[in-house]
Computed example of a mutant assay.
Amino acid sequence: MIPALKIMRLTAFASLGVLLILPLAVMAQQATQRSTVLQDAAYQDCLAAVRKNPEEGFAHAQLWQATGGGLPAQHCAALALVELKHYGDAADRLEKLLPLAEKQAPHLTVAILDQAANAWLLAEQPQRARQLLDIALKAAPDTPDLLIDRALASAALNDYAAARKDLDIALSADPTREDALALRASARRQTGDMTGALEDAETALAIQPRLPEALLERGILRLNKGDKRGAREDLIQVRLLAPDTPAAVSAGQYIEQMDVRQD
């Protein structure tokens, strides 16, 4: 059975629209907030094209880049590749943008490091993702989003103790982050802290009762305690709330496991 924290990573990074991976619009907003370089109309037009049709948007960005679009065109092209699920290529392009960003928009570098790390996670290269997040956190220590992303990378490397440490710091800054609570619940379970794991799952669900990752974790914990009825209720909810996701697949596997044991 796949560990729940890995399932959460897969769920979180399954598409740009889910949980922790920054949606395209948010990635762009993050890039433009502190930089005039990416605030021109041409950049916004390129992003609009990517949102409407990623393939056409990528072609638009490539043409713009060839005619002197510079950093904005290259950034738009990389985001288009994320939308097209060419994650490794997108991550590589984002990394290669860093020297240019440092010259033209130094405040943009942490955001691009995080975006590249997220893309490497999508490309199933968690070691590289964690290396980039180490760099980002040196520049922006104790930033909750960066810590959560590094926890996901650590979990993908089966380093649950490191994941838990980062999540502890993130939650000390913002105890209401239900995503971090759900992730820490799994990290705690993986490191043997069942009481703490259930406490985190329950706290996450008190904040967001329909959070699939927290329901999945509580379902697993309930099953481990022998509460099959409670586990089944949680796991069925995961499948209803987040169909066609790795979390739903995992929930289905646990339900099948219970059914087999009853036969």
Rank of each mutant, 00 (worst) to 15 (best):
T195D: 07
H86G: 01
A117K: 04
A162W: 02
C76W: 04
A206Y: 07
A139S: 08
L121C: 04
R188C: 11
K165H: 06
A117M: 05
R150C: 05
K165E: 05
A156S: 15
A151V: 02
V37T: 13
D234N: 09
S154W: 09
Y160C: 10
R261H: 07
A248C: 09
V37N: 02
L181V: 13
M1C: 08
A139R: 13
D142G: 05
Q104V: 09
V26F: 10
V238D: 00
A206L: 14
R189G: 08
R261P: 00
W120R: 09
T67K: 13
A162V: 02
R261Y: 11
Q127C: 01
D142Y: 00
P54A: 14
G219W: 03
A61F: 08
V249N: 09
A78L: 06
D159V: 11
A231E: 06
L152Q: 09
Q115I: 04
A161S: 08
A231C: 05
A182Q: 05
Q39N: 11
R261N: 08
V82W: 03
H75I: 13
E178Q: 12
I148P: 00
Q115A: 15
L97W: 04
K6H: 15
R9P: 02
I7H: 01
A129Q: 04
A251V: 12
A153Y: 09
R9Q: 06
D45V: 06
A248T: 06
L132T: 04
G70H: 09
I148E: 03
F13K: 11
V238N: 02
A155S: 15
A77H: 01
A49F: 05
R164F: 00
C46W: 15
L216A: 12
A119I: 08
S186G: 14
L71F: 10
A73D: 03
E233F: 04
A80G: 11
I148D: 01
Q33V: 14
D168M: 00
Q190F: 07
Q237T: 01
L122G: 12
T67L: 04
C76L: 10
D40H: 12
Q74L: 09
L16T: 15
A163T: 05
R232N: 11
P106F: 15
L108N: 02
V50K: 07
D89N: 11
L98N: 04
A248V: 07
L94R: 02
L223T: 01
L137N: 05
D179Y: 04
D45T: 10
A136F: 01
R232I: 00
N118P: 00
L38M: 14
L19G: 12
G68D: 00
K225C: 12
D149T: 10
A204H: 06
M27E: 14
Q257R: 11
R184E: 13
E102S: 05
G17V: 06
A155N: 15
P141V: 00
Q127S: 15
V238A: 10
P212Q: 07
L133N: 06
L71I: 10
A151M: 05
R9Y: 00
K103M: 13
A180P: 08
K228F: 10
D193S: 06
M1A: 13
T36P: 02
L198F: 00
V238Y: 02
R232S: 11
F13S: 01
L205P: 05
Q62E: 15
L94H: 02
L183S: 08
P175W: 03
A139Q: 12
S35Y: 03
P209I: 13
L183G: 03
P54W: 03
L10M: 10
